[in-house]
Design a protein around this nucleic acid. Structure first.
Lengths: 272, 272
DNA sequence: CCCTGGCGTTCCGGAAGTCGGAACGCGTTG
DNA sequence: CAACGCGTTCCGACTTCCGGAACGCCAGGG
């Protein structure tokens, strides 16, 4: 079981119409076909072919091959859907991340301390993927898929991850700083300023930059690599702006930094 | 959001050295490469090539292609590991199963009623994959990957799913009834008898047939298709034999059957 | 009622991608 | 220092895959 990877950093994180220059063209297009299902739950050959700009027959064969492999399933009406084998693989992928197990206790305690939702995010392309979450109010509120992945530039977690990773910053800027709310930082210069402040302070904030009314504070979880601490994940506290960035802000900052530091130390200790 | 598929029923559920007769050979082998990672967390090109009986260069290209697609990640030492994109896809796959959301409340109540662990399983090949679980004691006990998938023949959930599905029975018998404990039913005739009893009673049991000391009782969650109820999932109660199959057995049977019936009704109602 | 439109699927030939073997660079081990 | 194992790259022969068109099917509408 490994701790965590260096960020994969594929520059092409979007669901582009076609991947590109790599051997195994058919495998690449097969992955692109899978990507189509990130947006829509059910797709048929015609729509997949249109989205990827490939022949309908090709799309049909791809879908059939992925279905016999179990990565897709047929829905009664001849269309396809993501298969449960992906659930199995996905669970294996996170189970093998020591990070999650190490972070869970500290996340629970931080949730009790602050009474807010705590998130554990890692970098995937130019997005932040949350691999664990401790809900503030009721554990019954399920981890909604719509909120499992955020663009890195508009979240506090994305900022602590990008702050120490020049290549990631480049990728984020190349992709463009999309505006989600009136508060979203879309100016590259301002964004770099914020990252500099993040480096300096050791934590990052986001004030309603992705969803109106919701703000967050994040601190990096680091691992010593080559003698220097290197962020491998981000711990973030998210809640209504007044509860996170209001008078309680110092307490939130202190809490999330301490928890992140403790997780980092535990991670360091667990590293074999 | 669909309710559930008809069972996928791939006959080749094993991690065979090579898939076979289908178009898109390279996609098939790519899926086989992924399958290799179900057993081992980290693999290199040489080992993958050996397991699949393909050339080392081919394995290397497959690994590289899957990694650029994000389905695999490189681990510092040149080997590969399942990628977090699989986690994302997998979560999407189960989120889109209306089944899980519908079943969750009833599962929680049944857990409170019986004070045992409740599982929600679906059929994947000749195995049962548990997509949700309500733990009896502490919710902190995480869903261990080792126990997320069971061979269908040795679990009560697998029996209620197979009982009404002749093709699945054939597949299970073709794969062979492997013995896990002294109690595992390995005789095909006896297995068919048990399935007949399951059909008759409307529920199935398993007495320490997979893990010594642990037994289970399962009832089918059905959906009317073509005028007849068709099992799409199984609800099972698992615990120490004395607590599940002892004097409390009638209560457990009644509880799981009622909960499964309620979920079936809710599912029928939710079906668009 | 039949016809049209859209769907997923199949067939076929040309052509491009892919396979396996051997060679390379590199780290580790004896 | 050499030998080994690893992941990777190169190359030619060939197998497989791509795209277009035709097929069967279902639903909707004239």
């Amino acid at each position: 079981m490994t701790v965590l990877s260096l960020p994969p950093l594929d520059l092409d994180a979007g669901v582009g119409p076609a991947e590109d220059d790599s051997p195994l063209r058919s495998v690449s297009t097969a992955v692109s076909v899978l990507d189509c299902f990130a947006d829509e739950a059910e797709l048929g050959a015609t729509r997949v072919a249109a989205r990827l700009g490939i022949a309908k027959s090709t799309a049909c064969r791809m879908l059939a091959a992925l279905a016999t492999g179990g990565l897709l399933e047929r829905t009664g009406s001849g269309r396809y859907r993501l298969g449960l084998r992906l659930f199995e693989y996905g669970q294996l992928a996170v189970d093998r991340l020591m990070l999650r197990d190490v972070a869970l206790p500290a996340m629970g305690e931080l949730r009790e301390l602050l009474r807010e939702t705590i998130q554990l995010g890692v970098s995937v392309g130019t997005d932040v993927l949350y691999v664990e979450r401790a809900e503030s109010a009721a554990m019954n509120v399920r981890f909604r898929s719509e909120h499992r992945r955020n663009p890195a530039h508009s979240s506090s977690a994305g900022r602590v991850l990008a702050a120490a990773d020049p290549a990631l910053i480049t990728a984020i800027l190349e992709r463009g700083l999309q505006r989600y709310t009136p508060f979203t930082v879309v100016d590259p210069l301002r964004y770099r300023q914020i990252l500099a402040i993040t480096r300096e302070q050791g934590y990052a904030t986001s004030r309603e930059e992705f969803e109106p009314g919701w703000s967050s504070i994040a601190a990096p979880i680091t691992l010593t690599r080559g003698g220097r601490p290197h962020p491998v994940a981000a711990l973030s506290v998210v809640g209504p702006t007044s509860r996170v960035l209001g008078p309680r802000k110092p307490a939130v900052v202190q809490g999330v930094r301490r928890a992140a530091a403790r997780i980092s130390a535990d991670l360091e200790r667990a590293r074999g």
